[in-house]
Amino acid sequence: MNALPVYEVFARSKHDEPLKHVGSVNAADDDLAKAYAWTLYDEESWVEMCVIPRAAIVPITSHGRLPVWGN
């Protein structure tokens, strides 16, 4: 079992597109999460990419459960 924090990865490939969830990474800190997201989800030339610690996500529906994309 991987005890590292989970970061959700969001990106957009065009400026006029909404951010979309593209996956998640396990990483010890923000720097590694950025590096892993950038190198793992490189299937497109993203104009914007960001990572968010899953622990920082406040669910509105399904309180207390993982997001639907959660692994």
Partner: peptide, 12 residues
């Protein structure tokens, strides 16, 4: 991105 990876692991 190289720097993020290096710094992250160095610190870890």
């Amino acid at each position: 991105h190289h720097a993020h990876h290096g710094i992250g692991w160095f610190r870890t």
